[in-house]
Structures are given as C-alpha cells and as structure tokens.
Design a protein around this nucleic acid. Structure first.
Lengths: 163, 163
DNA sequence: ATGCTTGCAAAACGTTTGCACAGGG
DNA sequence: CCCTGTGCAAACGTTTTGCAAGCAT
C-alpha cells in the first residue's frame, strides 16, 4: 500500500506493482505495464490525458478507459498520488521517493511550488487529537502570488472567480 | 468583497448583495434574489444542484444556467465561499458570520467536521515567508476516520480510491 | 479454458455557452 | 427603451460504463 520510499528504478516499481496486483488477484497485463511506463516518464503533476498523449506518441494503442481504470490501481499501490487543484480534472504525481509535500499555486502564472510538510503533518496530528479524528491523509494548498509575479505587480487584480 | 462578518439577517445580506451588484453595474434581478434566498436557507456544504432542487420545491422556475452564473457573483460578493472536496463538483458554504475554518472529511461516513484555522493561517504565513510567496487563500483538508467510525473499527479497510 | 481485461463507442456527469425572449434600470 | 439577464437546449470536457473480443493465468 505504502512504503515505496526506497524504490526508485522502473524495474523495482514494476515489480512492486505486480506484487500489489497479484495479492489482490488482479492481472499484471500489457496495457498496465505500458501505462506504468508512461507514468514513470512523466514528471511533476500530470493528468490522465497526458498519459494518453504519451502513449499515442509512442505508437502504443491503449484505450482511454484503460488509463482511467488503471489510475486508481496505481494510486492504491502507492506509486501515484492523486492531487486535486481547483480544477475539475484530477492531477497525479509520483508518490514514491521524495517525502510528502504540499503545494502553493500561483494564481497569475499557475506555477506550482512544492514545500515540505513536516510542520503541516505535526499540525494535522495536533488538530486530529483535539477532535478525536484519525488522520489518513491531508491536503494543504496555498493560493496566491509567487515571488516573480508579486514582484511584477503585487496588486491582486484577478477576482477569486469568473469575469 | 469581504467584511460581511457582522451581517446575519437575510435582509442585510440581500442589501449587501444589491450594493455589490450595483457597484459593478450588474442588476439585482428576481432570479438572483430567489437564488440568494435559497442559498441562505441551505446549511453546511451544498452544491449547485441542491439550490436547483430547493427552487423547484418552492415552485420557482429558475434555470440551471442562471444558478451557475450567479454562484460566482455570490462568491465574489463574499456571501459564499467555494469549497472543493475530492470530488468533481464544487461545493459552497456561507462565508458570512463565523470565522474561517477548515475541514476534516471522514472517509467512511463522509461526515465533515469543521475546525478553526488560526494555527493553519499562522503556518501559511510562515511557509509563505520562507518561499517568498504572497498568500491569498489556503485550503487545508484532513481525510481520515471520525471519532464514531474509528471507534467502530479503526482498521482502514477502504482503499484511497474505489475498489 | 475461463473469466478478467481490453478498446471502442456511447453514456453520464457537472458545467458552460448560444440563442431568442423577457424584464430591470 | 435599451441592454442586461433569463430559460431552454445543446455543447462541452472529463470520467464512467456496456459490450464483444482478447489475453493472462
């Protein structure tokens, strides 16, 4: 489920995925291999369609539905993490290697800055304790202006929504 | 834009909305009045369709498009706040009265527990300072098991994403 | 050989847009 | 009265599902 922090190579991750599927009685098929390969070659935050494009570029014929059906498996296996920004489509990022982190999204240039979450995790635990809640995961996102954009013009001209 | 913390009654909020619209050169129409009335009668976290249902129940004929076109106005006016959980559709909550807060979502029973965000805001500022980021808003959400559900069975049986 | 898995197409879903008509300032 | 706002329906983009055929175990 988790604990892929020490696995880095494609081979190790394919093997981990295969074992995850097997212990669930799910097959490690060609399409799923191709999708995992594509996913490992993508960086940062990508969406389902980018996987499709990459597969098409490689001349691999994998259906859109198969990609959408495989993504939850990759998330459950601990290889991917679903990240939701304030848009309708889901984004994903690698969940192996690198510790957990959170995101700041620049409202003007859409740049995404990542930052470590030790303090965030500590706060999660403190709050959870106060409310008798058992935390499984957290999501912490800052929206604002990145350094460059706020230097250019610190006035927040864009309204929160619309227009 | 903001500063509706002291307004509570429907009349005050209608007046605030009317002024907000006027200073933008937008009309305070019958449909928008009905939508605001419906929105004020809803509690907690609701989605666009719930507003439509409520209006239909009241025998008011307001189009879906009008509701979707009015929601951003209500958000910009500071009456509503858009809240995004890990689902595709947007949710909204009252933004007047009550200070800012964040949410814990129970993975098993979907209950939403709110908690104050003073510490979260402080952490936002600290992190923003470290990364030279100008924060406009934050979003902090905990996913896990609420007190009742974790009492029943603390084992996290449900996978992060379905089946 | 069996039945999970696939690709395709079509449906579903929340949201947006185009349009002719209605209604507010 | 003019121009914005409205309701309807159709379009939209993402995700899901039904199905016959394919393929891993």
């Amino acid at each position: 489920m988790a604990g892929l922090a020490n696995l880095h190579t494609p081979d190790e991750l394919h093997e981990a995925f295969r074992q995850f599927l097997r212990q669930r009685g799910i097959k490690y098929t060609g399409a799923r291999k191709k999708i995992l390969d594509a996913v490992l070659d993508l960086t940062d935050h990508f969406e389902a369609e980018q996987i499709l494009y990459l597969l098409k570029d490689r001349g691999l014929n994998v259906g859109k539905a198969t990609v959408y059906r495989t993504l939850p498996l990759l998330v459950d296996s601990g290889i991917l993490k679903q990240v939701r920004f304030d848009v309708k489509q889901a984004h994903y990022e690698h969940a192996f290697g690198e510790g957990p982190h959170d995101h700041m999204v620049c409202r003007r240039c859409s740049r995404i800055v990542e930052f470590g979450s030790e303090e965030v995790v500590a706060l999660c635990e403190k709050i959870a304790r106060q409310h008798h809640f058992h935390v499984i995961s957290h999501r912490f996102q800052l929206t604002g202006l990145c350094w460059e954009c706020s230097t250019q013009c610190p006035v927040v001209a864009l309204p929160p929504s619309g227009e």
